[in-house]
Amino acid sequence: MIRFLLPLAIFIVLVVFLGIGLTLNPRQVPSPLIDKPAPVFQLNHLHDPDKIMMSKDNLGKVWMLNVWASWCVACRDEHPLLVQLAKTGIVPIYGLNYKDERDTALQWLRQYGDPYTVSIVDSDGKVGIDYGVYGVPETYIIDKQGIIRHKHIGPVTVKSLEDKILPLIRELQG
């Protein structure tokens, strides 16, 4: 009698999905901006507010955009790693100082080290919204054509660098 087995079949399908569900992180939301052109911006430098950086300045090179703030505790976790990465010179890291005070941000960089080629200021979070930032820190990899290739949400770890970010950068730099 097949119809009496139907509940069991439905249950098995359900269990398979629940099992897969256990391995997923419900709080990670993939960005729709992957493989789309990075939103354009025009922002002041953190160190020298008179200078302006435009997103198109970086066309022709692979670069990393790291969203950070001095009030962000998790940023402290990833920061030594970024400083190390900057020293190797594999990829230029641009810091987007997100909704922060200038003085504390500068102080923070003096204290923990400054891995950024340039730090730019997004004081009202407008550019953050354009990039779909919802949790700091976030890190974007942008290719030579100005296309976003990868977004990492949360602190960068050794594992995520080795498994995903560095191989991708090498591939993009070709």
Binding site: M1, P7, L8
Partner: peptide
């Protein structure tokens, strides 16, 4: 629990 009961049911 559920698997066993549904088998028993079937």
């Amino acid at each position: 629990i559920v698997g066993f009961s549904l088998i028993l049911f079937a």
